[in-house]
């Protein structure tokens, strides 16, 4: 679905990504993890063409993305970003903006079809009852759901999410990720998601890419990527990795300085 080959990119003089190779297959739930500033978001911005490649290419369904028109990309890839809307806009209006890529040449207003799709995706994401609320008056969890609904209104093949759970409590973390997982499993939507929380990444993703200093350190199943040596090496933090007894996925626990010192003295 998405093939990144030898991507070197950055902002102005500053190179962030150095020769990144990444391959996301159709229908995958693909997680990108890594420390702050390692270049996770830059990979996502390169896919949406907000940053241009200095070297290398990105292919979408085998087509080099630099040959695609903006609206063609928006019909295939939807983005759930961290940009909060600052203007007074209702949820329904916000979700309807996701239909813009499908506007025809002389079309200025939504067609019935667009309204129907907006209604459907709001119901699917469970925010149908909020359609007349203002975006600025909703909770962080509801805003994320509205972003996902807008993304779905684009009827994409791929959904890119940039830390959708970062400000949420565990109820909403599970709520958002379960929803994305359902869309992935039932609708066959390919998902690429940046996650800070290693345990959420382990629990939900089929495949992970660990980014370190603008390079891909490791890719594979969570159980292959999340071993304690790799994590300690990349994050410079002492951790213990065990297995979640129900899902059998790896579970990462931080070891605090106090406990670490105790252990060192004890041994």
């Amino acid at each position: 679905m998405i093939e990144i080959k030898g991507l070197t990119s950055g902002y102005g003089q500053k190179t962030i990504l150095h020769g990144v190779d990444l391959s996301v297959k159709k229908g995958q739930f693909f997680g990108i993890i890594g420390p702050n500033g390692s270049g996770k978001t830059t990979i996502l911005r390169a896919i949406t063409r907000l940053v241009k490649p200095v070297k290398g290419s990105i292919f979408l369904d085998g087509v080099d993305m630099k040959d695609l028109h903006f609206s063609d990309v928006a019909k295939k890839i939807a983005v759930v970003s961290q940009n909060m809307p600052l203007i007074a806009m209702t949820v329904r209006e916000f979700v309807l903006l996701g239909r813009i890529p499908y506007y025809r040449k002389l079309q200025f207003y939504e067609r019935d079809e667009d309204a129907a799709i907006a209604g459907k995706v709001m119901a699917l994401t469970g925010i149908g009852h909020l359609k007349d609320s203002l975006m600025s008056e909703m909770s962080a969890g509801e805003v994320q759901l509205a972003f996902i609904a807008r993304g779905l209104a684009q009827q994409p093949k791929v959904l890119l999410l940039d830390e959708p759970t970062s400000h949420l409590d565990i109820t909403h973390q599970a709520g958002v990720l379960d929803l994305v997982k359902r869309l992935n499993r039932q609708e066959g939507l390919t998902v690429v998601i940046i996650l800070h929380d290693l345990n959420l990444a382990s629990e939900y993703c089929d495949s992970l890419a660990l980014v370190d200093n603008g390079r891909i350190k490791k890719t594979g199943r969570p159980v292959d990527v999340l071993d304690y040596k790799t994590i300690e090496d990349v994050y410079k933090t002492v951790v213990v990795v065990r297995q979640n007894p129900l899902s059998m996925k790896p579970f990462v626990m931080i070891v605090s300085e106090e406990v670490r010192k105790k252990c060192e003295n004890g041994s």
């Binding site: 028109h69 903006f70 928006a74 939807a78 970003s81 940009n83 203007i87 996701g98 506007y103 684009q154």
Partner: peptide, 24 residues
């Protein structure tokens, strides 16, 4: 100007968001 109305609506969310919505 009406050709630019959807563009400006998308731009009101920010330039990055407008790009995500397929606007040049």
């Amino acid at each position: 100007s009406y050709f630019f109305a959807p563009v400006l609506n998308a731009l009101s969310l920010g330039e990055e968001e407008a790009v995500h919505l397929g606007i040049d």
